[in-house]
Simulated scan of single mutants.
Amino acid sequence: MLGLTHNYSLFVIIKEDIISGGARSGVNEFFMKQKINVFVLNIRILDKFVS
């Protein structure tokens, strides 16, 4: 992921159900700890069956 920041300044994370925790938090925390200034767009998809 660190290598990708040389070519990209926007990261989009799409995950179902809850907006906090999991992979999204890990990615956001990684960038913050490394002091990397990138945009992270977190998109939540409802975990719901649609008929």
Rank of each mutant, 00 (worst) to 15 (best):
K15R: 13
K33L: 14
E16H: 15
N28C: 13
L4N: 05
K15V: 03
S20I: 11
K35C: 10
E29S: 10
S20D: 15
F31S: 06
G22P: 02
E16L: 15
E29T: 13
G3E: 05
V40L: 01
V27L: 00
F31K: 06
F49R: 12
L2F: 10
I19D: 11
T5H: 02
G26M: 03
V38C: 04
H6T: 14
K33W: 06
L46Y: 00
L41E: 09
V12N: 03
K33T: 13
G26I: 03
K15M: 04
G21W: 09
L2D: 14
S51R: 03
I14A: 11
N42D: 06
N42V: 02
N42P: 01
I36W: 02
K35Y: 08
I45V: 15
L10Q: 06
D47V: 01
N7D: 13
R44T: 08
E29Q: 12
V27H: 01
N7I: 12
F30R: 07
K48Y: 02
R24G: 15
N37E: 02
V38R: 02
D47A: 09
V40G: 02
L10F: 05
F31L: 15
V50M: 06
V12M: 02
M1V: 12
D47S: 08
F30M: 15
S20V: 10
F11A: 04
Q34E: 15
H6P: 04
S9W: 06
L41Q: 06
V12F: 01
I18C: 09
I45K: 14
A23N: 13
I43Y: 11
D17E: 11
E29M: 14
S20C: 11
F39W: 07
S25A: 12
F31N: 05
F11L: 04
E29Y: 07
T5S: 06
I45M: 10
F31D: 06
F30L: 15
S9F: 10
K48D: 03
V38Y: 01
L41R: 02
S51N: 09
V38D: 01
K33R: 14
F11C: 04
G22D: 03
H6L: 13
F11D: 03
R24K: 11
M32W: 06
V12Y: 01
V38A: 01
S25P: 00
R44P: 00
A23Q: 14
